[in-house]
Nucleic acid binder design. Structure first.
Lengths: 211, 211
DNA sequence: GTCTATAGATTGATAGAC
DNA sequence: GTCTATCAATCTATAGAC
């Protein structure tokens, strides 16, 4: 195995440390030390700390969101071919499944999921806006698909429920490893497949509830 | 109106700035400047930055969680008096309503809600653990009440759904002001009363869904 | 491309006068 | 209790040798 070049090692180390300690809580020194690179290498390869996290987010956001868009479009076209609206369950599966499965798609993907799970709540608008910019088209298509699946639901109610959904998903992605079961504090673990089975009935029922 | 003493002004300023910029993103200098106090006053009155945020969180967490516990106990005893289990809707209302209503309970409460909404996702374990320590007994009672309301639901499924619920609520509390409606980006606003009416059908249906 | 060295700014915390 | 002044540590970013 060829040793990865410096740029890759910095990306990997930054992904991990940003996930663990947050954007502000991670110094360029910590990143370059973990990457066994020189402090100046960050600015040589990326230009600034902000440009570095943009690169970290972009590296995995682009393929992940492409996958989510693709799954949603498949549900949409399959339904149109049959002349019926898609079911809420189909739409939600298309969105939730890639999100959770991505976690085990390779080394570092897990850190990335923690990172973007946290990004929604980042105080720093820098990080938040980068993330939101990438996911916006996916959320817009999700909104359209759910409106087709639930035509009787007022648009305003649908949008709020969409945010409830995003909150649940974001929280789970962010905390999948640290959750504990009351009252004894047993660690609470579930694989991506099982998590889909837990999330979908909850979200589907919530979405389909009468307004 | 008497001018508030320095300690109070520092608490108020810290609450606001921590809510807007996060714990790490807020310097003691920014806090004392906003509070029109001297930089050294923070360490004189509180001892350290960490002790300051502990005081900020405790000031409102204690009464809020006392209210939530009280509401849950009321539901519990009312149901026992009638010899029937409470409904999921009653239990969820007892938990969600004070959370959202607290927001408009006075000046600063709104900042505090943003602050604790964010605390669940704070990278800094300091902040996270302070918050979790305060809310833990409430979540444990909520778990017990929901188990009574939904006796057929496996305990493991219930706990996960509880976390889905906490994710939704936390995300809404954190973002109530900044959410936008696709595709035009209209600001999306709802008062606490309306938000309860939006959240409860979603959460109740999700909780009651068959496993 | 990689390194050392350092500039330039900001931070939490404290000493000590009043 | 409040203030000025400052320490010691940390940070991002850059200049310049190799």
């Amino acid at each position: 195995m060829e040793p990865k070049d410096t740029k890759q090692r910095i990306l990997d180390a930054a992904e991990h440390l940003f996930a663990v300690n947050g954007y502000r809580g991670t110094s360029l020194r910590a990143i370059t030390a973990a990457a066994k690179a020189n402090l100046a290498a960050v600015n040589y390869h990326f230009g600034s700390k902000q440009a570095l996290i943009e690169a970290v987010i972009e590296r995995r956001s682009v393929p992940l969101n492409r996958l989510r868009l693709q799954r949603l479009e498949e549900v949409q076209t399959a339904a149109r071919r049959q002349g019926v609206p898609p079911t809420a369950r189909q739409v939600l599966t298309a969105f939730v499944e890639p999100s959770l499965a991505f976690r085990t798609s390779g080394p570092g993907a897990r850190d990335f999921i923690t990172l973007i799970g946290r990004a929604l709540a980042e105080p720093d608008d820098t990080v938040r806006n980068i993330f939101v910019g990438h996911i916006r088209p996916v959320v817009e298509l999700l909104d359209i698909c759910l409106a087709e699946a639930l035509p009787e639901l007022p648009a305003r109610v649908l949008i709020w429920r969409l945010h409830f959904l995003l909150g649940s998903l974001s929280h789970i992605m962010n905390n999948m490893d640290k959750l504990q079961a009351p009252p004894i504090g047993l660690p609470l673990v579930a694989g991506p497949k099982e998590m889909v089975d837990l999330l979908l009935p909850f979200l589907t029922a919530g979405m389909e509830a009468p307004a």
